[in-house]
Amino acid sequence: MTAAVAGAVDAVAAELRKVLTLPATLGALVVAVLGPVALAALTASQNPRGSAAEAALAAEPLVMVGAIVLGVVAVSSEYGGGRQIASTFAAMPRRPAVLAAKAAVVAVLVAAAAAAAFPAALLAARLVAGPGPDADGVLGRAVGGGVYAVLTALIALAITVFARSGVVPLVVLVANGSVVSVSFLLYQVTPLARYLPDLAGMRMVAGEDRLAIDDALAPVAGGLVMAAWTAALLAVAAVVLVRRDA
């Protein structure tokens, strides 16, 4: 094993330990997995003739909430509650490697949560009200939902590096995803807003007929645009971490 690989393995293993011993992580995973199950069952019970698959897909935003929390907490825990950041950088002075390790750990956890949440939510909806009518491209949209959640978590992680605190990124990202989307408001001003990360990736999850904007990017193209945003934000976060005093 080369030194660089050994260093990366050390960093990922350490960051995994850190994330798994934070109470907020457990909460986020519960929201991301049990939340969609409960919501899908509720939707199915209120609309017994509806499609179980649509009910499960409609519960995906709760995976997103858990994903945002995981991304934010992985970084904000370094700055709040005891300023652990000094311990982290004293132990692992290569800051981009620390960021990469955090991103890898968060991505894997969110992907695992999404992979567990969708089948469980689907099962719950079917148990409550039967399968109901088919929905279009269910598997693709379920996978797209997982990808969307992973990218959202990584964007949250990068933004928290800039903020050095969890509160603002959490409120902004969760509100942006649920109450009112800033990108959607911008879209009323310019159609270029469909290239913003949250709108760009939207068609990965939502069926064409359910979108609030009518010229949304196609699923794969939109996913790539969102991934490019994510990579760019993480790269800027790495530069900020290296330049800034810990």
Partner: peptide
């Protein structure tokens, strides 16, 4: 230098790793 919600052992475990 430890996060307040981690135990002493958990803190030292990640630092060691």
């Amino acid at each position: 230098g430890a996060h307040r919600s981690r135990s002493a052992r958990q803190h030292l475990a990640w630092v060691a790793r």
